[in-house]
């Protein structure tokens, strides 16, 4: 079983109107090469982006946002990205802001087959608007529903041909949970090795979650 495919094939899975999960936060763990391939080699649009910060300024994700190819952004922190702030405040894009820990848990819930998570985060704030509140053992929690993507782009340092991934440093962030929570998961890796070359002890994300692997350095 070899899950390694070309970037061209990987990006062909993203269609107009789909929801696209993109891992990474800030300057770390962003699958920039996959996003750049999608941006430059397709004209898909009307996408819903699920990503913490809509990219950092100058990143392919932010450029794609500036090209108005996202109709909605579900994220957590827009404070370091003028483009998303401009579009959000100007009504140019729909958006949903989610506390960062809730963002990660909603994605994990989707990937883990859970019907949602109960969190105290957001109780008594604007975040609770429209959500069910439950009292468990005397404490209030919000019911936060699972968050799923049609396609996920994630980033790893090393992948093997079976899709086992090694992630490094805090580039893990949401890449680990997004691997579980989309119908089609593509991991880009700096280095691709044969099965058996990654010690099972070192696997960050098991290949079961990963549908395809692309080499980040591939020219297209």
């Amino acid at each position: 079983m070899n899950k390694v495919i070309s970037k061209k094939e990987a990006i062909s899975h993203v269609k107009n109107g789909m929801s696209l999960m993109v891992g990474g936060f800030n300057t770390s763990g962003d699958p920039n090469e996959l996003v750049e391939a999608l941006r430059t080699k397709t004209d898909v649009k009307n996408l819903t982006l699920i990503n913490i910060d809509a990219g950092v300024e100058g990143s392919p994700l932010t450029t794609m946002l500036a090209e108005r190819r996202f109709k909605k952004v579900i994220g957590s922190f827009f404070g370091a990205n003028k483009e998303i702030q401009k579009q959000a405040d100007g009504g140019m894009v729909e958006y949903e802001l989610v506390p960062q820990g809730t963002f990660a848990e909603r994605i994990r819930a989707a990937g883990a087959g859970l019907g949602g998570v109960l969190t105290p985060t957001g109780v008594g704030t604007v975040v609770e608007e429209g959500k069910q509140k439950l009292e468990i053992d005397g404490k209030e929690y919000l019911l936060e529903k699972p968050l799923r993507g049609d396609v996920a782009f994630i980033r790893a340092e090393i992948a093997d041909e079976a899709g086992n991934l090694v992630m490094v440093g805090n580039a893990r962030n949401t890449n680990t949970v997004m691997a579980m929570a989309a119908d089609y998961v593509v991991a880009q890796a700096k280095k691709i090795v044969k099965v058996g070359e990654i010690d099972p002890q070192d696997v960050t994300v098991a290949g079961i979650f990963v549908d395809a692997v692309v080499w980040a350095g591939e020219e297209i």
């Binding site: 957590s76 827009f78 404070g79 702030q85 802001l97 820990g101 704030t125």
Partner: peptide
């Protein structure tokens, strides 16, 4: 003022 998003602040202070 521009919408910054709450980021991790809400989770950090509840716990």
């Amino acid at each position: 003022v521009r919408m910054p998003g709450m980021g991790g602040a809400m989770d950090l202070v509840v716990g």
